[in-house]
Amino acid sequence: MKILTCVKYVPDAGDEVGFDSDLRLGRTGPSSKLSELDEYAVEQALRLKATMDDATVTVLSVGPADAEVALRKALQMGADEAVLISDGAIAGSDVFGTAAVLIAAAKHLDEVGLVMCGMSSTDAGVGALPALLADALGWPLLSNAAEVSVEDGQARIVRTDEVGTRVVTAAPPAVVSVTDQSGEPRYPSFKDVLAAKKKSVTTLGLAEVGVSADLVGAGAARVQVTAVVRNPERAAGRVIVDVDGSSVDDIVEFLAAATK
């Protein structure tokens, strides 16, 4: 079974992010890398593989040629092969355009049993991609997993939310998205880094996976960014210094105002 893991090459969230004049993320400013949330998906895919007899992990990305950096990182972590769908026509795509390419790629590749994703990207942060993939493929979606396993031919996840903990199962093929609670991604050993140098990244264009250029790119985008506004700087908090209990009233007043 092939575990297809979708990863995104994103601007480093810890760096200062700039925007181009058309309000798209500036690709030239900050350094870019494999999205941290997608590292969790790669990690879970690798852990699943270790529990299965005949599984392989393929990482898949849609992005510019530089996105090979993100795929290389996943290969160092232990993924078996990497596919990059890169095409000038894709630039400016929204989540629907990206999903269309990924869906086509998933169909193009053989024996995909599970599609794994991070819970969201760290740049645009839409978080809808796993659901779009599952819908279009007609596969069950096991979303926001904190634990993933495959037992007796069933994919099984544990999801914890404000209501409680749910255990959800589905028969593959299925789409699984994992959260940042699923387990820390590994730091590749140098042996793994060396081994990854021998692995190659397959780059395909739109035509090769059979996606019409009309479906992707800025022209086809259904999501329009109309403004980008910087968050106001966080104001300094108020410090109440108290040694003898005289400021109890101040604290009560503050709490009352805050909870009103």
């Binding site: 200062e16 991604p185 730091y187 050993s189 140098f190």
Partner: peptide
């Protein structure tokens, strides 16, 4: 432990990530 087994205290994972990508242990720009 690090280069063959990748087995080390968890905190060093983020240290190495920060050093590899940002060139400083804090991961600052």
């Amino acid at each position: 432990e690090v280069m063959v087994k990748s087995d080390f205290p968890e905190e060093f994972g983020s240290l190495y990530g920060n050093l590899d990508t940002k060139g400083n242990p804090w991961g600052l720009p």
